[in-house]
C-alpha cells in the first residue's frame, strides 16, 4: 500500500505544477522559454525560503522532475558548496549539482542530432 501513496503523491504534485504552467500558457502571452525560466528561478527562490525542501520530502519525483525541482537542485547545491568552501561555493555549487542533467541533455542532444533526421509535422 505504501508505494501507492508514494506514487500518488508524485502524480498529484507533479500534475499540479504542470497544470499551473498550463494556465500561464493559456491565460498569458508568455512564451514557453519565459515560463521555463520562471519555473527555475521560482524553484531557487522557494528552496531558499525553505518551502521546496519539505515539498520534495513529501512528493519525491513529483517535486524534483518539474523544472522548479531543477531550481531546487541548484539552490541546495549552492547551500552545500558555500558551507564547504565559503564564497567560492556560490559560484561552483549550482552548476556542480546540475551537472548530470545539463550534461546528459547536451550529450543526448548531440547524439540525437547525429543519429536522427528532422521530420515534418502532421
Amino acid at each position: 500500500m505504501e508505494w501507492v501513496i508514494t506514487f500518488g503523491k508524485a502524480f498529484l504534485v507533479g500534475g499540479l505544477l504542470c497544470a499551473i504552467g498550463q494556465i500561464f500558457i493559456d491565460k498569458t502571452k508568455l512564451t514557453p522559454a519565459r515560463i521555463l525560466v520562471g519555473y527555475v528561478v521560482m524553484g531557487v527562490l522557494l528552496s531558499a525560503l525553505g518551502v521546496y525542501g519539505p515539498l520534495v520530502s513529501f512528493a519525491g519525483a513529483g517535486a524534483t522532475v518539474p523544472l522548479t525541482g531543477f531550481g531546487h537542485l541548484l539552490a541546495t547545491g549552492v547551500q552545500k558548496a558555500v558551507a564547504e568552501r565559503g564564497l567560492l561555493g556560490a559560484l561552483t555549487g549550482g552548476l556542480t549539482a546540475a551537472a548530470a542533467g545539463i550534461t546528459a541533455a547536451m550529450i543526448f542532444g548531440l547524439l540525437t542530432a547525429l543519429l536522427f533526421t528532422p521530420g515534418d509535422k502532421s
Binding site: C18, D26, A33, L67, F70, A105
Partner: peptide
C-alpha cells in the same frame, strides 16, 4: 502542453529539438 513542457523532459526537448 505544459504537461510536457514543465518536467525535465521538456527542458531536454528544448535542447535536443534545435540541435536536431
Amino acid at each position: 502542453g505544459a504537461g510536457t513542457l514543465v518536467p525535465i523532459t521538456g527542458f531536454a526537448n528544448s535542447m535536443v529539438s534545435p540541435a536536431l
